[in-house]
Design a protein around this nucleic acid. Structure first.
Lengths: 211, 211
DNA sequence: TTTTGTGAAGGAATTCACAGCA
DNA sequence: TGCTGTGAATTCCTTCACAAAA
């Protein structure tokens, strides 16, 4: 196919998921994997795996399968996770601190380069990573000078919109929002929400159907 | 419609999202809302709102709209978030602790009734909520005796599968998984994954397309 | 009028099934 | 032979457009 215009969002999401078992298989020394095996590991249809990948090129060998390492590299190229992305986080309560120490972020090339907090008591504190907690006033200058590319919002819900607006005003094009509200945003700013309670509501709904 | 058999998962997800602004509107004293207004707040199509709700009954008044309070109550009934659900969490690192203190859980009727940790140093510690940290060995007896309904996994990825298996073996029917791997599970156990890095990969992909 | 509820239309994503190639 | 890549078929979801109702 190789037409990059109309790729389903769900495809991008799955491609990201495919990389997880591939990473593990590579460590284990597995050289080749078929769409059927990879599909089983990710609980999707084998044709889905092939179609997803076909949006970006032909990575497999007919009769054989996919080279684990090559496919992993191709996926990283597709997702642009073959380079470092700079994150700035606002709100260092429990969630913010947990995100900062979440090893998967750094392992996948996402690096926090600034951490902002409102509470004056905590300004100046040195975090385990070596980062020093900055006052929220510094959001604008530091976003620019450090080259922050993604703003992570882990504040109280009541402050989330204001923080998002400030990120947007200073030119941030992508925001990862952990507060449980839909944030206003201009056309040109991407925004992803992580909302645990939606997932729990889902479980509760289906649970009550099953017994 | 009122046919509860083939309701899209996306509908359940959106219904959960509709409840957020409704909650706020109710607090503010707003009495009535149209599908168009609610749609705008949740960034969806108005017909989508009406169709989603129509799966469960007729909650609106033609020419008027929806009674904010009634609709909120109906949604809570649909999602079965009109009662308390008991959660047990395993893994009290940064993420686990953050989840325990996440006020939105309790506000929405999700209550942690047990917290398990492997590190012997921390067993017996009293958490801010009053819960006492339990050794993981107690997972089976306490799940049964406390009536835990949803298992929350916030351990290291390497232990996630083992913990999930133990929950399943003791009869848990729903698991909320915060580790970034797909867990094996039997047919009868529901599982929802919260994977931040998938969201970040999504942002990175789209960011690189925009500039 | 206004706005809901919904059948019908349209669009999108998934799966099938097989041609094509190693 | 075995597995990929992909058009065609299918299934699923969303949006339209209007009849029904207050």
């Amino acid at each position: 196919m190789r037409k990059e215009s109309k790729i389903p969002d769900a495809t991008i999401e799955r491609i990201s998921i495919y990389s997880r078992p591939l990473e593990k298989l590579f460590e284990l020394g597995t050289l080749v994997i078929s769409s059927e095996q990879l599909a089983k590991l990710c609980k999707v249809n084998p044709a889905q795996v092939r179609k997803d990948l076909s949006h970006f090129g032909e990575f497999g060998v007919r009769g054989i399968g996919y080279d684990v390492h090559d496919l992993l590299m191709e996926i990283k190229k597709i997702l642009v996770s073959d380079r470092e992305w700079k994150l700035g986080i606002v709100g260092l309560g429990g969630m913010g601190m947990a995100l900062l120490s979440h090893e998967n972020f750094s392992k996948m090339g996402y690096r926090f380069v600034a951490a902002f907090e409102q509470d004056p008591e905590r300004i100046g504190e040195t975090l385990p990573s070596g980062l020093i907690i900055q006052p929220v006033d510094k959001l604008e200058p530091l976003t620019a000078s450090l080259g922050i590319e993604v703003g992570v919002i882990a504040t109280q819900p009541s402050q989330a919109q204001a923080v998002a607006d400030r990120f947007v005003d200073v030119g941030i094009k992508a925001v990862l929002n952990f507060s449980p509200i839909k944030l206003r945003r201009p056309e040109h700013c991407l925004m992803e929400n992580v909302d645990f309670t939606v997932r729990l509501d889902n479980l509760a709904y289906h649970l009550s159907k099953v017994g």
